[in-house]
Structures are given as C-alpha cells and as structure tokens.
Design a protein around this nucleic acid. Sequence first.
DNA 1: GCACAGGGCCAAT
DNA 2: ATTGGCCCTGTG
Length: 291
Amino acid sequence: MKNVVMLENLDHFNIGQILESGQVFRFEKISDSSYLLNAKNKLIKITQKQGSSSLLIYNATLGELDEIWSRYLDVHTDYQTITQTLSYKDNYMAQAVAFGEGVRILKQDPWEMLISFIISQNKSIPHIKQCIGNIAQQFGFPIDEYDENGKTYYTFPTPKQLSYATEEDLRACKVGFRAPYIIDACQKNLNGEIILNDLYLLSAEEAKESLMKIKGVGPKIADCILLFAYSKFEVFPTDVWIKRVIEGVYFKGKEMKLSEIQIFAKEYFGDLAGYAQQYLFFYGRENKLFK
DNA sequence: GCACAGGGCCAAT
DNA sequence: ATTGGCCCTGTG
C-alpha cells in the first residue's frame, strides 16, 4: 500500500459511520481510525482521525481518486441541505441526523448489491458479511495481499464468474435457501432478461419492477439496490428495524403494514426518504432503540 | 442447552 | 390479504 492520496475539507463525512450504516458489507475495521475497504476490484485503506475533515486513502492514485473513489464515496453531494431539511421535520429525526451526522450513501455496484441483498434476507449483518466473503473467495479473483496481516482479499465475482457456481457450491458458502435465488440472478443477467446498466435510466418504480422479476428479490431488497447502487433517493427500504422505529416514533407504537409505512415515508420525507431511512437505521440500530 | 431473531421472500391458504 | 417455513449463526 505505497500510494496515498488525501481528501480534504469534507463535512458531513465520517468513514466509520458510512461503513457501519448497513449499506456495505466488504470492509473491516483495523484500528480506531482506519478501515480496509474492498470495492471496485480494489483493496484500499481509509484513515480518518477522530473529528477530522480530511481523509487518507492508501493504495490509490490521484487518477483513481478522480475516476473512482470520489464518486463511489459520494464526496460531491451537499449534505448541508439534506441534513438541515430532515432535521426540521421533527425532533426525533433531528436526533437521528445529529447522531449520524457523517453518514453518506455510497454509489456501489448494482450486481454486487443485487447478490448481497439477496443474501441479506433473514440474516444478521455479520452473517451476511461472512457469506459474501465466502462467495468472493470461491468465485472472485485474488487482489493485493494486505501485508500487515498477510491475508488475501478477493474481487466480487462477475455474473459470468458466479454463473459457474452450482447450488451445492453456493450452499457451501452458507447462503442456505437463497442459493437458487442467486442462480436465478446469474441466469437473468447473462441471458439479458435484466440489464443492470439500463436501470440507471429508469424511474425508481420501473427499475423496482424489473429487479423484482428475479427470484428472492422483494420490495425491501429492490429498494436497497435502488438506493445503494442506483442513487434513487426517493425509496424507503423498510426492514424490521425501520418498521419498529417508524411505528414507535410516528404511530405511537401501533403495528403498521409495510404498505402503510411506505406511503407515510413517501409523503413525509419526499425525495429525501432514502437519506431519512439511512439516518434512522443507523441511529436505531447503533442504540438498539425500539427493540 | 436451546429458543429466538436476524437489513424478507415464497408459496400456500 | 395473511401466514408458515426457511438455511444458518450469533445471542440470551
């Protein structure tokens, strides 16, 4: 990791909060201020000192910073307006934003998001990470060795690479009943039934409909893909955590249907729903609220 | 040790 | 529209 580049004057940017907010799975914390991040077929180390507005990215060049990482890390979005608008909504939202002041929504790879969130269903985050790691190790390419621990890291497999996996192979990666879903995603991708790059151009609604043709992709998983890969910020992925938070904060603890929560979020948060979801998720989960 | 839930979805009522 | 079952693992 000899190349290092620096990003300065970042506000509303906390790499720890960004990575720990449940949107990304291929990272590990290696010290109080450093993370290893496996993305874009590369392994980088990101260091941000406590409270600092600058970032060091190891194993990256200036060219890669411009062409890859500034977009991936969403450094050009103005979060001042977003956080302010949401904070004015209500007191609870203001607390959530204050707690997760440095959260940003990454622009990740659609294929990796598709498979990752198919795996995510009815699993806890550590388990999701483990399965994705297993799959990368089995079907991806090795990348740089990280010389501080001598461990080998792997790229996320392409659709072609992953299509060589049998159901048995996938089950060996501990994905369980999701194995046929992953196979279906590979097939629909390779035979052109779904062209992931085309979904950028569609509305969130159209793109969601398309994603849900894949087995194992329901409304929640489709919304996660739309938000974390396609930057469709008007969606509101509603999982058990968010459901409990919304019920607790906005409906006096009354049990609500998913469809009702979707309608509420769209109406209340508008085109910032995706950001709102991310702050609420991070706040609720880190503090084990409404459990 | 064992019940339970985990960033849900499918298939059968 | 509603509900049971699901691979597997960490937690209490």
